[in-house]
Write a protein that binds this DNA or RNA. Structure first.
Length: 588
DNA sequence: GTGAAGGGCCAC
DNA sequence: AAACGTGGCCCTTCAC
């Protein structure tokens, strides 16, 4: 593919280029950088294309890009939402532009996100620019220059041509992608996703403050506990091994399922098929060694997953953790997070209290109260379920009172617990045997309790059945925003049909929750503009903002308002409840 | 050595 | 009869 492009190497050329580009509604946009991490490398090239002519701006030709007034026309173009910047994985470009030019890219069309929405959860589809271009336009893209040396003083012709071509392809690519977004009725969810890029880019740039000293203190305690548990477990396990008496203790690898299982069998422990905690738990009382194994597992997990390794992610320039969030991390639309995963920090206060606000700052922490159950109440239109929320009382207690037909004040803790587990379980399509397993009820008792539950909530029951039927008939499920998930199953295989049904029934609930959170992030981003407030973490139904201590109360009001407004867009039949508080640490 | 798969477990 | 959804990380094991 031949690409016509011009290099932009001085202020005058930049002014002319920007004047020309300002006539365009859609601009293909891309950047080339010397590193992947915006805190490490250099933003080298910015490429714009209207589909006919392409301009490659070499930032190295401009001194001090962040403050250089010659770059003003470029900043205007980037931050003007009436010029749609079409980019592939725009979060990447947005972070670099934010960090190195000090502006936010407004008006984003992201072909990476659009491609993910269109593929509707198909895990086999790839979403690199080369894959997406091939799929939608049939164009072969040579990406061999992608990892070339962008820090060289003189860039080669093939490097610059590669850079130009990636921007040039975006305009025709968007036309194809947008047609498909339209025909798949994904316009609303696409808008919601594109609007979410900036808040996310900003959050990753900001990072989350981890108190290294506190983390190390905590670590030392766990290390001691781990060593003690390991030693004791080693002793107990080797008691049944013959060599123990001859050669001292027979060392076994405590992290090896195989070796531990063998050792347990030697000691006469009836090891179940799996050695997962919930299978072993019932044996712990009779066999102390099993209890010790569970104790060891707990501390070992803490030490390996939440140990020193996380400290290596602290960015020296900021002293903070800048994790990677995948905006469409799951087919349901939820985020995923890695390097490190800030969405799986143990709830235990010893861990969370290590995430702090720096001196003079505060954390504002807000989460939706039972948002998935409220979505379910709204979708199912079940009068009793809705009533339980509208009453504003303890939800699980109220449902227990309804299910067991007893006044709320007479509800036993056990009844409340059954109701709570069922309330959460129905969202996932729980079955009687699983319910029996987790409550200790017999199969019959579990079935009876579930019958009572669905007898009380007939509207919920029929919604879930109808939703399951529809999923199987249509082979797809959708959230309130129109986000789609296709389901693949062999209809002659009962297990596959059952799994697809549970999956498809759950997706609109979990996915609408994700829709709501993403809408909230955009509203929040706008209301925090010009304040000290910065988004620092999100965990599915929770948003954490860091701000100046003096603005904490005002920020809390803004955060709660954004979350409530977002929730109310899709949840109308029951109140949307947001719990918010200010703290110096990430704790309740 | 490296990478995939599977078990296990953390979050919501 | 019906076996609870979505992720990521760490470890061992096993194949290359």
């Amino acid at each position: 593919m031949e690409v016509y492009f011009q290099m932009v190497l001085d202020a005058e050329a930049l002014r002319k280029t920007c004047a020309e580009l300002e006539n365009e509604k859609f601009l293909g946009f891309d950047t080339e950088t010397t590193e992947l991490d915006p805190y490490k490398g250099e933003l080298r090239l910015l490429q714009f294309s209207n589909g006919r002519s392409t301009h490659v701006i070499d930032l190295r030709a401009f001194n001090d890009p962040k403050n250089n007034p010659d770059l003003a026309p470029l900043r205007v173009l980037l931050s003007d939402p009436s010029h749609i910047k079409i980019a592939h994985n725009s979060k990447f470009d947005a972070k670099w532009v934010r960090n190195h030019l000090g502006v936010e890219i407004e008006g984003i069309y992201d072909t990476f996100l659009a491609s993910q929405l269109i593929s509707a959860g198909d895990q086999d589809r790839r979403h690199s620019l080369a894959d997406v271009a091939q799929f939608f336009t049939g164009t072969e893209l040579d990406k061999s220059q992608q990892v070339s040396d962008w820090s060289a003083n003189e860039l080669s012709h093939s490097q610059v041509e590669y850079a130009a071509r990636d921007a040039a392809i975006m305009v025709p690519l968007r036309e194809q992608v947008a047609d498909r977004v339209q025909s798949d009725q994904l316009n609303d969810v696409a808008e919601l996703e594109f609007n979410c890029v900036l808040p996310l880019a900003e959050m990753e740039i900001t990072g989350f403050n981890l108190d290294e000293g506190r983390w190390r203190e905590q670590l030392e305690k766990v290390k001691i506990a781990q060593a003690k548990a390991a030693d004791e477990l080693q002793d107990m396990l080797s008691a049944g091994v013959a060599q123990a008496s001859l050669f001292g203790r027979a060392e076994i690898n405590l992290d090896s399922q195989q070796q531990v299982t063998d050792a347990l069998l030697n000691l006469g422990v009836p090891v179940p098929n799996t050695t997962r905690a919930w299978e072993l738990q019932p044996l712990a009382e009779k066999y102390p060694v099993v209890g010790k194994l569970l104790e060891y597992r707990g501390v070992a997990k803490s030490l390996s997953s939440f140990g020193e390794n996380i400290l290596e992610y602290i960015e020296p320039k900021t002293g903070r953790i800048h994790a990677d969030f995948r905006q469409i991390g799951a087919p349901t639309g939820r985020f995923s997070c890695s390097n490190p995963n800030l969405q799986q920090i143990p709830h235990d206060e010893q861990y969370r209290r290590c995430f702090t606000s720096p001196p003079g700052r505060k954390l504002v922490i807000a989460d939706y109260s039972q948002i998935e159950l409220r979505i379910l109440a709204d979708f199912s239109d079940d009068a009793n379920f809705i009533k339980a929320f509208v009453s504003g009382e303890d939800f699980h207690k109220t449902t227990a009172s309804q299910v067991f037909n007893t006044p709320p004040e007479n509800v036993t803790p056990e009844q409340r617990s059954f109701a709570k587990r069922l309330n959460f379980g129905v969202v996932y399509g729980i079955g009687a045997s699983r319910f029996a397993m987790m409550t200790g009820l017999s199969q019959t008792e579990a079935e009876n309790t579930m019958r009572r539950y669905f007898g009380t909530y007939r509207g919920l029951d029929s919604y879930l059945r109808e939703s399951g039927r529809k999923v199987i008939a249509e082979r797809q499920a959708r959230t309130a925003s129109g986000r789609m998930m296709r389901l693949r199953f062999d209809e002659s295989d009962r297990q596959q049909v059952g799994a697809a049904k549970r999956n498809g029934v759950n997706m609109p609930i979990q996915g609408t929750s994700a829709d709501i959170l993403k809408i909230a992030l955009r509203l929040l981003h706008e209301s925090l503009r010009g304040t000290s407030g910065k988004l620092v973490n999100i965990v599915h139904d929770e948003i954490i903002v860091e701000c100046d201590a003096s603005e904490a109360e005002a920020t809390a009001v803004k955060l709660e308002a954004a979350m409530r407004r977002a929730g109310e867009r899709y949840v109308k039949k029951v109140p949307v409840s947001v719990d918010v508080h200010c703290a110096d640490e990430w704790t309740k």
